[in-house]
């Protein structure tokens, strides 16, 4: 049924992962950086599921499920931090979070 080679799935997953990483590196808006993190985790999930399908191993689906929960928890904390940062700084510009340095 699956005629698409595994390497295609992996390429897609890796691409998503890389796009997410680039987002975290380049976007100053903390919300968008958070979204990029989610894209990374989605890439990971895709890789997991692709491997699972190609190995015919369903138990990893449970692992991906747990990863989803973790991702959600991470977003919750991240957004909370963004809000707190906004209150504190009046901005969620990551560039402005650079008082500590050296």
């Amino acid at each position: 049924m699956t005629n698409i080679p595994l390497s295609h799935w992996l390429a897609l997953a890796t691409a998503l992962f890389a796009i997410g990483t680039i987002g975290v590196i380049t976007r100053r808006n903390m919300l968008i950086a958070l979204m990029s993190l989610e894209i990374m985790l989605n890439g990971v999930g895709l890789a997991f599921l692709a491997f699972a399908r190609f190995r015919g191993d369903v138990s990893v689906h449970a692992a991906v499920f747990i990863v989803m929960a973790v991702a959600a928890a991470e977003v919750a904390i991240g957004l909370a931090l963004a809000i707190a940062m906004y209150r504190n700084n009046g901005s969620i510009d990551l560039d402005q979070a650079s008082r500590l340095k050296g």
Binding site: F17, G20, T21, V24, M30, A33, L37, M40, L41, V44, V70, E74, I77, G78, L81, A82, A84, M85, N88, N89, L94, A97, S98, R99, L100
Partner: peptide, 16 residues
Amino acid sequence: MEAGVKYFLLGALASG
């Protein structure tokens, strides 16, 4: 606050 944000962002990246 900055420490928390930095740690979070980089930590989440590392987790990824």
